[in-house]
Design a binder for these strands. Structure first.
Length: 413
RNA sequence: CGGGGCGUAGUGUAACGGUAGCACGCGACCUUUGGGAGGUUGUAGUCCGAGUUCAAAUCUCGGCGCCCCGACCA
């Protein structure tokens, strides 16, 4: 894409109404636009980034047999009353509204209920199980206080996967598979080292649930990390009794701030029993399906990656997430040799299937470099006099700042 | 929801109750051209509504909005 065609602009200064580093940089770089408190739109660069995050998660969910669907945002009140999660006294962050024909609806805070009902329409035999179903969808939560930029909004995108099993052994296998897939996902985000499977409060069916907590000063949670075992305990469950159960030694734990980047839950039969999701077993008896739920905050991930990797110059993206792989920065003017060299390189890279952003604007070098730093694309290719003279291109790695002269052909490998 | 702070051109910031200014941006012209250049010039603003006052960006009240701390976040 030519940068002269990109409608978004970078800004020299951070918006006055953002304190969170992620929102400041993402707005400055033109990745997002703030609509209201806790509500952000994704602009071209932001959407490309978001889509890369989605692609990575999708690949890993598909790899363990997940089947993708999309559910509705609008919810059926009657369905949620059956699990007692409609009443404002029980769940206080619904966005609710009236239907013109009469009655109420609300915007989904999560999707266990509708998916359980969908599955009930399709699953009736043990032969139909196991199954894992997921979606990328916006969740709406009427938070009293949105904060931390894109990391805690009123509307946010989530990947939510739900598992359906006929036995607890089968459920445990699904749980383990999903857990392993999450670890792969975080590895591809470049967050493996600083993301810890973390024991947290368990809900109804288990002593603990597991969160994935990514260490960051911007985090809202406090966790206690066992570096050697690469696991952590959320402060909310840090008791001697819990540590004993988990086989952890308090003396080895280190306190860290972290942000919840994913979570996995055993749901047991709470939803299947309430909503009639059952199957006929081999012996002819009817049994409730055993469920699990597994979430990753997709838009939150944009914020986490910003918080973790950005430096004083701007955004820094892991290769698989970056909106473009390369950023050509031409220092020429329309029609001169430098521009022609840059144009040709751009066209050839596009033909070769490389995702490339081409800064073809006629601005001063300093401004273009500053913009390039801000945008955070992994490799910058500077096209100046030297490139025309030698045929080699100056390549700057965004992460390290390392500069190398690279022959043209090697840019395509 | 409790507490605190704040709303001024597109953006960021000034202005004792007394002429709303500066920088960046955007437009025009000239010079410049490898780390956010310089000059000339143009453009554009006090969140909304009441009140106090000769006079309100400034004081008072109400509304709307934003930020922070806490609470909340299966």
């Amino acid at each position: 894409m030519k940068q002269s065609h990109l409608f978004t602009r970078t800004r020299r200064e951070a918006p006055a109404d953002e304190v969170a580093k992620n929102a400041q940089l993402l707005v400055r770089a033109g990745y997002i636009h703030k609509e209201m408190a806790g509500v952000y739109s994704y602009l071209p660069l932001g959407l490309r980034t978001l889509n890369n995050i989605i692609r990575i998660i999708r690949e890993e969910m598909n790899a363990i047999g997940g089947q993708e669907i999309v559910m509705t945002a609008l919810q059926d009140k009657a369905l949620w009353e059956r699990t007692d999660r409609w009443d404002d006294a029980k769940v206080d962050n619904w966005f609710k509204t009236k239907l013109a024909v009469g009655g109420d609806t609300g915007l989904a805070i999560t999707h266990e209920e509708p998916l359980t009902r969908i599955m009930a329409a399709h699953i009736s035999s043990y032969r139909d199980l196991p199954a894992m179903v997921y979606q990328f969808q916006n969740k709406f939560r009427n938070e009293l206080r949105a904060k931390s930029g894109v990391m805690r909004g009123k509307e946010f995108m989530m990947k939510d996967l739900y598992s359906f099993a006929k036995s607890s052994e089968e459920h445990e296998a699904q749980y383990a598979a999903t857990r392993a897939a999450y670890i792969k996902v975080f590895k591809r985000f470049g967050l493996a080292k600083r993301t810890y499977p973390t024991f947290a409060s368990g809900g109804v069916f288990a002593d603990f649930s597991e969160e994935f907590q990514t260490v960051s000063e911007a985090g809202e949670d406090t966790i206690y990390v066992d570096e050697e075992k690469h696991v952590a305990v959320n402060k909310e469950v840090l008791t001697d009794e819990a540590l004993a159960k988990l086989g952890l030694d308090r003396a080895r734990l280190v306190e860290k701030k972290a942000i919840e980047s994913g979570n996995i839950f055993h749901l047991g039969t709470r939803f299947s029993e309430a909503l009639g999701l059952a199957f006929t077993a081999e012996d002819g008896t009817k049994k409730p399906v055993i469920m699990g739920s597994y979430g990753i905050g997709v838009t939150r991930m944009v914020g986490i990656l910003t918080e973790v990797f950005a430096d004083e110059k701007g955004l820094v993206w892991p290769a698989e997430v970056a909106p473009f792989a390369m950023h050509i920065v031409s220092l020429g003017k329309k029609g001169d040799e430098i521009s022609k060299t840059a144009d040709a390189l751009y066209e050839d890279l596009v033909k070769a299937g490389v995702e490339v952003l081409y800064d073809d604007r006629e601005l001063r070098a300093g401004e273009k470099f500053a913009d390039s730093d801000l945008l955070g694309i992994p490799r910058r290719i500077v096209v100046g006099k030297d490139a025309v003279a030698t045929g080699d291109f100056e390549v700057v790695e965004r992460v390290t700042g390392e500069v190398a002269k690279i022959p043209r052909a090697e840019l395509f490998s």
